[in-house]
Design a protein around this nucleic acid. Structure first.
Lengths: 156, 156, 156, 156
DNA sequence: TTTT
DNA sequence: TTTT
């Protein structure tokens, strides 16, 4: 009888924090910035840009993708749910932190030239459950939208 | 270049807090509960229901609809954006509160027979259900999210 | 009492169709591809990738942004509503087309170095409403969550 | 690298169509109405309400919940993806139908006093509301989206 | 603090 | 064809 859904597109604030629990489960976290464009009111008042920072937490498969592909500045789509957890600070005061527990993540704006920017190390498309297919992301050949596109044509 | 969107369906925790600013702008706030169903794991472990509480803030027209139609227990759909604001507590420690600033609200599950459950007074189904009330009710003073906040402290 | 919302991220199939109505209102349309990753079932059956094509329609301001920045291959985020309209084909048979009427669009994966790749003409990042700020994403200084956080403080 | 998401809240147009495939998999379908409120323009022109009809398709567990709890008039939340499938009509012309393939459904506005409105029969609030029915009801034959379709034609 |  |  209820829905708790968050959808974000933004840029990662710094390289993600990755850790492995005792049971070898991977947990990743990073902050994500979304920026609301400023504008000028009809009365001529300048409203500046406003950046919101979100605490993203990812588990298991998504954490491993994070470990491999996400770093400071990466633009990502996150779909998840809100979780507010409480903890007691050093003064014994109960405090609250709201996090987005990710159910899905999409890496945005990746390009053919990024094979080298995608983790420097042990990427093995044959084993990673969530790995993108060996042909689509790195290569430009299998894109059905623009078979004749040269990489230089890419408008972004 | 960014998206900050929250979609919630849940039940209102207690009667909304309504206030009118000096410029007669209406601001409403309430807490909204979303409950994730518990389940039993394949190993037979019982995972109980888990309720999340969200701080919803609404302005102007939505605040007035809140004033008229929303009360403890009402099921609503909220679409909005995440806002984390900071404030200094009584110990001078910076603390953070995450709120959902509503862009849209839909009242759910209303039926023809509910004229009596919609505000105690002047509901008239012949008018538009979502018409803004012409009457003004004066504000109360307490913000459920931050008991010590004066109205002038309002950081949004 | 109802919600009609579509959220898509995909690639534009071909250069958009742009037209101006008599009243000088701009209307743009394009097809957008979303691709669901294929996978292998537990029984070893290969499920291939599956591409879905969506008809996107944009009006006024969004149409003009489309005219300037969107072309074949562009990755975009679209938020909008479903509209099914009917028309009579050459045989007098009523037919239906479902379109997504866009309420919001975000251009994805654009980079700072793109001033020259964005439209062939007069792009000026100092004036363009949608240009990314030069300061916000790269810096780490404005992150309120973790200047002094040790990793051990993280309570999850 | 893509997202295909639909979020709807609306009312079911008529009692759902339920069928069981040979492998005993349950498939349900119904039409869902969303209504956009009309309004009066600043120039005094009346814009009437506008109802959009959506073709919803649900499989397995969600189909069985549909069988048990959804009927004409029920208000539901649907989260799903767009699928446009093609078929050849009696004139051999290729035609297209866009459906929403549901990933999640929430029944809205249900109350304790609704035991009598929830299916005519065996609703037991002591059980889990969303429990799948243990009984099987045999399929009907008509697909509201395509009157001439045999069950074997099912293209999904 | 809600709801099922 | 629904609902308000």
């Amino acid at each position: 009888m209820s829905v708790n859904k968050v959808i974000l597109i933004g840029n990662v604030g710094k390289d993600p924090d990755i850790r492995y629990l005792d049971n070898n489960v991977c947990v990743a976290s990073f902050t994500l910035a979304t920026t609301e464009r400023g504008y000028t009111t009809s009365a001529g008042i300048q409203i500046p840009d406003k950046t919101e920072w979100h605490n993203i937490v990812l588990w298991r498969g998504l954490a491993k993708i994070t470990e491999q592909y996400v770093k400071k500045g990466t633009q990502v789509y996150i779909e998840g749910k809100l979780r507010t957890r409480s903890w007691d600070d050093q003064n014994g005061i109960r405090r609250y932190t709201t996090e987005i527990y990710a159910d899905n993540m999409e890496l945005l704006g990746r390009r053919a030239d990024q094979s080298n920017t995608v983790s420097g190390n042990n990427y093995n498309p044959a084993q990673n459950t969530y790995a993108q297919p060996t042909s689509s992301v790195q290569s430009t050949t299998s894109n059905p939208f623009d078979e004749n596109n040269q990489i230089d044509d890419l408008p972004f």
